[in-house]
């Protein structure tokens, strides 16, 4: 167990975290494996867990009626998967599909939200790490939106 806890704390998303907070997080964590082709979660499901990828590859995709699913981003080693657990009503807004053998830590969202309510320092520490990831992804989504390699308007 101690080894798993130190492995959790060694995840890039948690780099440099106070071991006390790490211990609290470990109480909400479990070790997971996903075979290629299995979903970490599906759109509309309850966002009751988020993931810190140790290795592998996960495709975030939207399904569009009558068309192939659209992959909007891929995530890999060291990445965090999922933010909908932060915001009510805690439902996933896309699918997350493992496209390679994937190992991850799953963190129980309700457990973490509860601990953050009790210890706001933990909540701040998590938000301090989450916000840059979210901002970068929002900026990347904007870049994708402007279709930078598309044909210039005539």
């Amino acid at each position: 167990m101690e080894m798993l806890e130190s492995m959790l704390l060694a995840h890039p998303f948690l780099a440099g975290m106070d071991p006390g907070f790490g211990h609290l997080l470990f109480g909400c964590a479990r070790n997971l494996r996903f075979a290629p082709g299995t979903f970490l979660f599906r759109e509309g499901e309850s966002a009751d867990e988020f993931y810190l990828l140790r290795e592998g590859r996960v495709a975030l995709q939207l399904h569009i009626p009558g068309r192939s699913p659209l992959v909007i981003a891929t995530l890999g080693d060291g990445d965090l998967v999922g933010a909908s657990w932060l915001v009510a009503p805690y439902r996933w807004s896309y699918d997350a599909l493992a496209t390679a053998p994937t190992r991850a830590f799953g963190l129980n969202a309700a457990c973490l939200r509860e601990k953050s309510e009790v210890d706001h320092h933990l909540g701040y520490e998590m938000m301090r790490r989450l916000v840059p990831v979210m901002v970068k992804r929002m900026q990347a989504a904007r870049h994708q939106l402007i279709d930078v390699y598309g044909r210039p308007p005539t």
Binding site: A59, P69, A73, T74, A140, Q144, V148
Partner: peptide
């Protein structure tokens, strides 16, 4: 690539994200 269907097994995202990786 910026967008792909599931037959693409490579990376999906913008180039600056590759710089970080």
């Amino acid at each position: 690539v910026d967008h792909a269907d599931p037959t693409w097994h490579g990376h999906v995202g913008v180039v600056p994200a590759l710089v970080e990786r």
